Simulated scan of single mutants.
Amino acid sequence: MIWKREISLEELNAMGEGTLVSHLGIVFTEIGVDSLVAEMPVDSRTRQPFGLLHGGASATLAETLGSMAGYLTTKTGQSVVGTELNATHHRPVFEGKVRGVCRAIHPGRQSQCWEIIIYDADGRRSCTSRLSVMIMGEAVNS
């Protein structure tokens, strides 16, 4: 297990209340041994004007997952900030929910890199993202 913080799904979801996370309907559904999973609806909040999932909504799901995964690997007094996000969109999604699965590429002590794969309701990859974060707070060597 790579997580250093103990937190329940309920607590994790409560952290997003009143933020963009809750506004877009993002819900964390699983804290795995080495992965973090969340879902997001494809609806009027997350579609672009042409009726498909907005790339910015996919990027928000990816950044939410990667940032929270980074946070879960830190100690009390530390936090994470995103430094780079990229997203490659593979196929459109028009309805249902998408599911993001986040895994560490490099879970370092000062910087981290996360891969987030977003799947449509049929389990097809719709987006691949990579998020880099920097660890902030107390000395990371302590």
Rank of each mutant, 00 (worst) to 15 (best):
M1N: 13
I2H: 11
W3S: 06
K4G: 06
R5L: 07
L9T: 06
S22E: 08
S22A: 14
L24N: 07
V27L: 07
T29L: 02
T29Y: 02
E30Q: 14
E30D: 08
G32I: 01
V33F: 11
V33T: 15
V37D: 10
V37N: 02
V37Q: 02
A38Q: 01
M40A: 07
M40T: 07
M40W: 01
V42A: 09
D43M: 07
D43S: 06
D43F: 05
R47L: 08
P49A: 01
G51P: 00
L53I: 04
G56M: 10
S58D: 12
T60Y: 06
L61A: 00
A62E: 07
S67D: 09
M68L: 15
G70K: 02
G70T: 03
Y71R: 03
T73A: 00
V80I: 00
V80N: 00
V81N: 02
G82Y: 01
G82C: 04
T83E: 02
T83K: 05
N86T: 15
T88F: 10
T88A: 08
P92L: 08
P92C: 11
V93H: 03
F94E: 13
F94P: 05
F94K: 14
F94L: 13
E95I: 09
K97R: 14
V98P: 01
R99K: 10
R99V: 13
R103Y: 09
R103E: 14
A104Q: 10
A104G: 06
G108K: 04
R109E: 09
S111G: 09
S111H: 10
C113K: 14
I117S: 15
D120M: 09
D122S: 15
R124K: 15
R124S: 12
R125L: 12
R125D: 11
S126P: 08
T128V: 15
T128Y: 09
R130A: 08
R130Q: 12
S132A: 12
V133S: 14
M134A: 10
E138A: 06
V140I: 09
